[in-house]
């Protein structure tokens, strides 16, 4: 029975998908705006982990060329550099989004004096 190697062999996907929907659940169901933004961050981080785990190869080292390999390079020796690059971009995008989200939350707080979504909706309706 190779159920155990199967589960161990794919645990990275399970974990990332779990985090993905954990973040999404937090974004949909929480009423506090800051908690929603935290959910957003978990959500984005899970995708970053997903990509990075795709770059991993057993028995490979990080993609910086070692002095002794400069002649003939065996691709199996090094991790896949592309997902790292893509995720550097994704991290920066996530940070930028976080900055704008916090800015908007700050503006919302200055207008309504609260960060609870139901209180804000109440304030809008009673206005």
């Amino acid at each position: 029975m190779d159920a155990i190697p199967y589960f161990i062999g794919k645990y990275n996907y399970w974990g990332c998908i779990f985090l993905f929907f954990l973040g999404m659940y937090a974004m949909i169901s929480k009423t506090n705006l800051i908690k929603k933004i935290i959910g957003l961050n978990i959500f984005q981080t899970s995708i970053i982990l997903f990509f990075i785990s795709a770059s991993f190869k057993h028995d490979a080292t990080l993609p910086i060329l070692m002095e002794e390999h400069k002649g003939a390079i065996d691709p199996v020796m090094y991790l896949n550099p592309l997902p790292h690059v893509l995720m550097l971009t994704a991290i920066v995008v996530a940070v930028a989004t976080l900055g704008v989200a916090l800015t908007l939350a700050l503006k919302v707080y200055r207008i309504y004096g609260t960060l609870e979504e139901d209180e804000i909706n109440h304030a809008i309706q009673s206005h």
Binding site: L33, L40, Q44, I47, A54, T97, K107
Partner: peptide, 27 residues
């Protein structure tokens, strides 16, 4: 600002789903 924040959350969910799709395609 509140409407924009909602748009941000929804828009980021959309963009992240797309990115997840890109990850599947890439894999």
């Amino acid at each position: 600002p509140f409407a924009a924040l909602n748009y941000l959350l929804m828009g980021t969910i959309g963009a992240s789903f797309y990115l997840m799709g890109v990850a599947y395609i890439y894999i």
